[in-house]
Simulated assay, not measured.
Amino acid sequence: MHVETVVAESWDHLQHELFADSWNEDLRRFRSRVAFRGLSDSSYRLETTLMRMGGPFAELERHMLRNFKKYAHRNVVEADSLWHWLSVAQHYGLPTRVMDWTYSPFVAMHFATGDLEKFDRDGAIWSVNYVKAHERLPRRLREWVEQEGANVLTVELLSDVVNSLHELDTLDSEKVLIFFEPPSIDDRIVNQYAFCSVMSDPRLVLDDWLCTHPGIARKIVIPAALKWEVRDKLDQANINERVLFPGLDGLSRWLKRHYSPRR
C-alpha cells in the first residue's frame, strides 16, 4: 500500500491541497485536524533524529536520555516526567524518537523551501490526520482523549498513563503513533505552532506505518520549479526565519537567505 501523493501544480493548487478537508460540519467552521511537516527534499523519509544516528540507536536511546537528565539543570523542565524530558531533549538537539510537526501549513511550507541548497529538487509536505491516527491508540489512552475532549494529548495526560521508555515500548501489541503538545519552552515552539509525535516502536519509520494505515496521511509534493514562488510569497507574508527562530541566529539566517542571489 502507498500513501496518497499529490503534486502541486501552482501556488493556488498548493493552498487548495493543504486546506483540503478542513471544513468541520459540526462546528460550521474551518478547523483542520492535520499535522504538517515540511521537507526540503521529497525523497527524505520520516525518520527521527534517533534513527539518523545509525548503529544500535534503539538501545542507546535510554542511555542518552538518562545522561541528559543527569547533566541538565533540573530547572529546564516543568515536571520530572518522561514527556517533559523528551520534549526538552528534542528541542535542544538530543537525538530522540520525537518528531516535530506544526498545525500551520505555512510553517510547513517554510521548512520545505527554506534551504536554498535544495532548490534544485522537489520538496514535500506531509499531512497526517491526528484524529484518525489516535483512533488506533490503546483503549486507556483513547479514553483519556475522549474524557478530556481533546484531539492531541498533553504531556500531563500522557504522564498519567505512560512514564518510562519501557512502558512506551510495550504500550500495545500493535505499534501506535501518538501526537502530543510539548510545553511552551520558548517562543520558537509558540511561533512555529509546533507539536510532536512519537512511535511506540523507535525502530519503525513513520512512512512504513502510514503505508499500512491508508486514509490517515497525504504527501503533497512541491516541484523544484515552484519553490521560488512559494518562498517569495512566504517571505511577503512574514513567514521566515526571523519570526520562526526568534533571536539573532534566526535573524542572521533570514538575512543570509533573503539577500542570496537566485541561481
Rank of each mutant, 00 (worst) to 15 (best):
V3E: 03
E4D: 13
T5K: 13
V6F: 14
V7Q: 10
V7P: 04
A8G: 09
A8H: 10
S10H: 05
D12S: 07
E17V: 14
F19L: 11
F19S: 12
A20Y: 12
D21P: 02
S22E: 13
S22G: 09
W23K: 03
W23D: 01
N24R: 15
R33T: 14
F36E: 08
F36C: 06
S40Y: 11
S42F: 08
L46H: 03
E47N: 11
E47P: 00
E47C: 08
M51L: 01
E59K: 13
L60C: 06
L60F: 10
E61Q: 12
M64S: 11
F68S: 07
K69I: 10
K70Y: 14
Y71Q: 05
Y71H: 13
R74D: 08
R74Y: 06
V77P: 02
D80I: 01
D80L: 04
W83V: 03
W83Q: 00
W83G: 00
H84N: 15
L86T: 05
Y92E: 07
L94F: 15
L94W: 12
R97S: 03
V98G: 05
D100P: 00
W101E: 05
T102I: 03
T102P: 06
Y103E: 13
S104H: 06
V107S: 01
V107T: 04
A108D: 05
F111R: 03
A112Q: 06
A112H: 04
D115L: 02
E117Y: 09
K118N: 13
D120R: 14
R121L: 11
S127N: 07
V128W: 02
N129R: 12
N129T: 10
K132F: 04
A133G: 07
H134G: 03
H134W: 05
R140M: 07
R142D: 03
V145D: 02
Q147W: 15
Q147V: 09
Q147M: 15
G149A: 04
A150M: 11
L153Q: 02
L153K: 01
L153Y: 13
V155I: 13
L157E: 12
S159M: 00
V161P: 01
V162T: 02
V162A: 04
S164F: 09
S164V: 07
D169K: 14
L171D: 08
K175W: 08
V176W: 00
L177Q: 05
P182S: 13
P182K: 00
P183F: 06
S184G: 11
I185L: 15
D186A: 01
R188V: 07
Q192I: 01
Q192E: 09
Y193D: 10
A194F: 01
F195P: 03
C196S: 15
V198C: 01
M199F: 00
D201W: 02
R203T: 14
L210W: 01
L210N: 00
H213S: 06
P214Y: 04
G215P: 00
I216K: 02
I216E: 01
K219P: 04
P223A: 08
E229C: 08
K233R: 15
K233T: 11
L234I: 09
L234C: 05
Q236Y: 14
A237D: 09
N238R: 12
N238H: 12
I239Q: 02
E241P: 01
R242S: 15
R242E: 14
G247F: 11
G250D: 09
G250F: 07
G250I: 12
S252Q: 09
R253P: 02
W254M: 11
K256T: 15
R257L: 14
R257N: 15
Y259E: 00
Y259D: 05
S260M: 11
